[in-house]
Simulated scan of single mutants.
Amino acid sequence: MTNLKKNLFAALLLATTTMAVNAQPHASTVSASAAASTNIADVFGEPKSRAEVRADLALWKRAGLDEFHSGENTPDTFSREYRVAYAEYVRLRTGPEYKEEVQRQSGL
């Protein structure tokens, strides 16, 4: 009887493992060289220096976007005030202010 229980348990384990494996999506057939050529920069962009991150945060605050976040509440990104502040942040981030702030943050 003990062997019967062991065999039933083994069969059940095999069946559930097979079901779990079959439920997984199949990986696409990508060559190893193509997979190895994927760079983290391709996925996330170029890494930022500490000065660049701090400059970005400073411009985010300068635009007033920090005022829209309080605790766990998310801001109303569709409000006119938020969109105006976000447009100002984008203007600062894409303008010469960003380069100036990076230089200031890096102590140059």
Results as ranks from 00 to 15, higher is better:
Tyr82Glu: 03
Ser37Glu: 06
Ala20Val: 13
Asn22Pro: 05
Pro96Glu: 15
Leu59Pro: 00
Ser28Phe: 11
Pro47Met: 03
Tyr89Trp: 12
Ala20Thr: 13
Leu65Asp: 04
Ala87Met: 12
Asp76Ile: 06
Gly45Ser: 06
Lys61Tyr: 07
Lys61Cys: 06
Met1Phe: 06
Phe78Lys: 14
Arg80Trp: 11
Ala20Glu: 13
Ala55Ser: 00
Asp76Thr: 09
Ala85Cys: 11
Gly64Leu: 01
Ala51His: 02
Leu12Asn: 07
Tyr86His: 12
Phe68Val: 06
Arg93Thr: 01
Gly45Ala: 06
Phe44Ser: 10
Ala23Gln: 09
Thr29His: 14
Ser31Gln: 11
Leu65Arg: 00
Gly95Asn: 05
Gln24Leu: 15
Glu67Cys: 02
Asp76Met: 06
Ala36Lys: 12
Thr74Gly: 15
Thr18Gln: 10
Val102Trp: 01
Leu57Tyr: 04
Gly95Ser: 11
Val53Pro: 00
Ala10Tyr: 10
Ala63Val: 04
Gly64Ile: 05
Ala55Leu: 00
Pro75Thr: 05
Gln105Met: 14
Pro47Tyr: 03
Val53Ile: 06
Ala85His: 10
Asp42Val: 10
Leu14Gly: 13
Thr18His: 09
Val30Asn: 05
Asp56Lys: 04
Leu57Val: 08
Lys48Thr: 02
Val43Pro: 05
Ser70Asp: 06
Val90Asn: 09
Leu13Val: 02
Ala10Asn: 13
Ala85Arg: 08
Ser28Gly: 15
Gln24Asn: 12
Gln103Thr: 13
Glu97Tyr: 01
Gly107Asn: 07
Leu13Asp: 10
Leu59Gly: 00
Val53Lys: 14
His26Asp: 15
Ser79Met: 05
Gly64Val: 04
Asn39His: 09
Glu81Val: 08
Leu92Glu: 01
Lys48Ala: 02
Ala87Leu: 11
Ala58Tyr: 00
Thr74Ala: 13
Leu65His: 02
Arg91Ile: 00
Arg91His: 03
Glu72Gln: 09
Glu100Gly: 03
Lys6Pro: 09
Met1Ser: 07
Leu57Pro: 00
Ala85Asn: 10
Val84Phe: 11
Lys48Asn: 02
Val84Cys: 09
Ser37Cys: 04
Asp56Gly: 11
Leu8Val: 13
Arg104Leu: 07
Glu67Thr: 07
Glu88Pro: 09
Gly64Arg: 01
Arg104Ala: 08
Ser28Arg: 14
Ala63Arg: 00
Arg104Glu: 05
Val30Gly: 04
Glu72Ile: 10
Glu52Asn: 03
Ile40Met: 09
Ser70Cys: 11
Trp60Phe: 11
Phe68Trp: 06
Tyr98Asp: 00
Asn3Arg: 05
Val21Ile: 14
Glu97Phe: 01
Phe78Tyr: 12
Lys5Asp: 08
Ser28Trp: 12
Gly95Cys: 04
Tyr82Met: 09
Asp42Thr: 14
Lys6Val: 15
Gln103Tyr: 12
Gly107Thr: 07
Asp66Tyr: 01
Gly64Tyr: 01
Asp56Phe: 06
Gly45Leu: 04
Val21Phe: 10
Phe9His: 08
Gln103Trp: 08
Lys99Ile: 14
Leu108Gln: 15
Phe44Asp: 07
Glu88Phe: 05
